[in-house]
Amino acid sequence: MPYRVILTVVESRGDCPYYKVGDKIVFEEAEIVKEKSGKLCLYAIVGMAPYLTALCRDTPQEDWINRKEVIQCPDVNRPVIFKVERERI
């Protein structure tokens, strides 16, 4: 069963021009739900893609991805921390 993944900005370290606390990005399988998402930073999306692939799928309960609570974008100068939420769809 697929999942909806909701990433919510909980912290921004530096002066990120794209995200502020409270901003969201919503994924349903391989799709970004534009109507429910804010701005999209290519570097953040590409850096988080391996996690998103696993988060959107049904995985065994003991799988490490089910314990993932936050994801950080790869920008070393202005990292943004996203809280991870999953909902069955």
Rank of each mutant, 00 (worst) to 15 (best):
E28R: 13
E28L: 14
E28G: 02
E28W: 01
E29C: 12
A30K: 06
A30R: 11
A30M: 13
A30Y: 10
E31I: 08
I32M: 15
I32S: 09
V33F: 12
V33A: 02
V33D: 01
K34V: 07
K34E: 15
K34W: 09
K34T: 08
K34I: 10
K34D: 13
E35I: 08
E35M: 13
E35V: 04
S37H: 10
S37I: 10
G38M: 09
G38S: 11
G38C: 10
K39V: 06
K39I: 06
K39A: 07
L40C: 06
L40R: 11
C41V: 02
C41A: 09
C41Q: 01
C41N: 00
C41M: 03
L42H: 03
L42Y: 03
L42D: 04
Y43P: 04
Y43V: 14
Y43T: 06
Y43H: 12
A44L: 06
I45M: 08
I45Y: 00
I45E: 01
V46K: 02
V46N: 11
V46M: 10
V46W: 10
G47R: 06
G47H: 07
G47P: 13
G47M: 11
M48Q: 04
M48S: 07
M48L: 08
M48D: 06
M48K: 08
A49H: 07
P50R: 15
P50V: 15
P50Q: 13
P50L: 08
Y51A: 10
Y51P: 14
L52H: 03
L52F: 02
L55H: 07
L55F: 15
C56W: 00
R57V: 14
R57H: 05
R57I: 07
D58V: 04
D58M: 13
T59A: 03
